[in-house]
Structures are given as structure tokens and as C-alpha cells.
Simulated scan of single mutants.
Amino acid sequence: MTKQELVQKMQENQAWVPGKTVKLDFGDQGVILLDGAGSQVSETDSPADTTIKTSWDDWQKMAGGELDGMTAFMTGKLKIEGDMSNAMQLQGVLAKLRG
């Protein structure tokens, strides 16, 4: 899946935390902004309540269920800046994408 396909799928599945902004930062692969306040998903790099930093490869593994989010966090493959509770809520949102 490409990043643009992921943005599209997240938009269709309303993959955001209501009223909050969460940025997925993939480093050199760019960002995806999940804007729960504006009810949209985009590739806009703007400030967010929570920023989740991980590599695109590790993200793909987590999305595919090969890598547990908590394990990724504990081993430093996933970094969270800002409001941690938004990141926890996002796990449920991402489960919908797999479903």
C-alpha cells in the first residue's frame, strides 16, 4: 500500500480521534495528519496534539499485525510526542482499518 492509498483508506474509514489531531511522521516518507477536529486525513505537515514517529516499514508491519504497537514503542521503533492518550485511542481506530 502506498502512503496515498493509506490516506484514502483512513479518510474512508474515518480513522481519526474525534476532536484531536494526530500526526504520523514517517521521516523521509513524509507525514499523514489525522484531523479529528476537521474530520479529514491529509498529507499536511502542521502542528498536532500528538505526533507518532516511526519508519514507513515499521508502520506497514504494525498495520499488518506483524509488529505490536506497544512492542514497537518499547523498542524505540515508535516514538510518541504530545498527548499519549490520543495514541492509545488510535490503536482502536487502526484496528478498524484491518477489519
Score class of each variant (00 low, 15 high):
Met1Val: 08
Met1Ile: 12
Thr2Arg: 13
Thr2Gln: 12
Thr2Gly: 12
Lys3Pro: 10
Gln4Pro: 04
Glu5Val: 01
Glu5Arg: 02
Leu6Pro: 06
Leu6Phe: 15
Val7Arg: 07
Gln8Ala: 15
Met10Trp: 15
Gln11Glu: 10
Gln11Ala: 10
Glu12Cys: 00
Asn13Trp: 05
Asn13Cys: 06
Gln14His: 11
Gln14Glu: 12
Trp16Val: 02
Trp16Asn: 07
Val17Ser: 13
Pro18Ile: 04
Pro18Trp: 02
Gly19Gln: 12
Gly19Arg: 11
Lys20Ala: 15
Lys20His: 09
Lys20Ser: 14
Thr21Leu: 04
Thr21Glu: 13
Thr21Gly: 01
Thr21Phe: 01
Val22Glu: 14
Val22Ser: 06
Val22Met: 15
Lys23Gly: 08
Leu24Ala: 06
Asp25Gln: 00
Phe26Asn: 02
Phe26His: 01
Phe26Gln: 00
Phe26Leu: 00
Phe26Ser: 02
Phe26Gly: 04
Asp28Arg: 01
Asp28Ile: 00
Asp28Met: 01
Gln29Ser: 14
Gln29His: 15
Gln29Tyr: 09
Val31Phe: 11
Val31Thr: 14
Val31His: 13
Leu34Asp: 09
Asp35Lys: 06
Gly36Ala: 04
Gly36Gln: 05
Ala37Thr: 11
Ala37Gly: 01
Gly38Lys: 10
Ser39Glu: 15
Gln40Arg: 09
Gln40Lys: 12
Gln40Val: 03
Gln40Glu: 14
Gln40Leu: 06
Ser42Thr: 12
Ser42Glu: 00
Glu43Ile: 01
Glu43Gln: 14
Thr44Asp: 15
Asp45Cys: 11
Asp45Trp: 14
Asp45Thr: 04
Ser46Val: 12
Pro47Gly: 13
Pro47Glu: 12
Pro47Tyr: 08
Pro47Cys: 10
Pro47Thr: 09
Ala48Asn: 10
Ala48Trp: 04
Asp49Glu: 15
Thr51Ile: 09
Thr51Ala: 09
Thr51Gln: 08
Ile52Leu: 14
Ile52Glu: 11
Ile52Ser: 05
Ile52Trp: 07
Ile52Lys: 07
Lys53Trp: 01
Thr54Met: 14
Thr54Ser: 07
Ser55Phe: 03
Ser55Pro: 07
Ser55Ile: 05
Asp58Met: 09
Asp58Val: 04
Trp59Thr: 00
Trp59Pro: 02
Gln60Ala: 13
Gln60Trp: 13
Met62Lys: 01
Ala63Gly: 03
Ala63Arg: 09
Gly64Ile: 09
Gly64Phe: 04
Gly64Cys: 08
Gly64Val: 05
Gly65Gln: 05
Gly65Glu: 05
Glu66Trp: 05
Glu66Lys: 14
Glu66Val: 07
Leu67Thr: 07
Leu67Asn: 05
Gly69Ala: 11
Met70Gly: 03
Met70Ile: 13
Thr71Ala: 15
Thr71Pro: 10
Met74Gly: 11
Met74Ala: 15
Lys77Trp: 10
Lys77Leu: 06
Leu78Asp: 12
Leu78Met: 10
Leu78Thr: 03
Lys79Ile: 11
Glu81Ile: 08
Glu81Ala: 10
Glu81Asp: 15
Gly82Asp: 07
Gly82Ser: 06
Asp83Phe: 09
Asp83Ser: 14
Met84Leu: 13
Ser85Leu: 11
Ser85Asn: 05
Asn86His: 12
Ala87Glu: 06
Ala87Leu: 03
Gln89Glu: 12
Leu90Cys: 03
Leu90Trp: 09
Gln91Ser: 07
Val93His: 05
Val93Lys: 11
Lys96Arg: 07
Lys96Ile: 03
Leu97Asp: 02
Gly99Asp: 02
Gly99His: 03
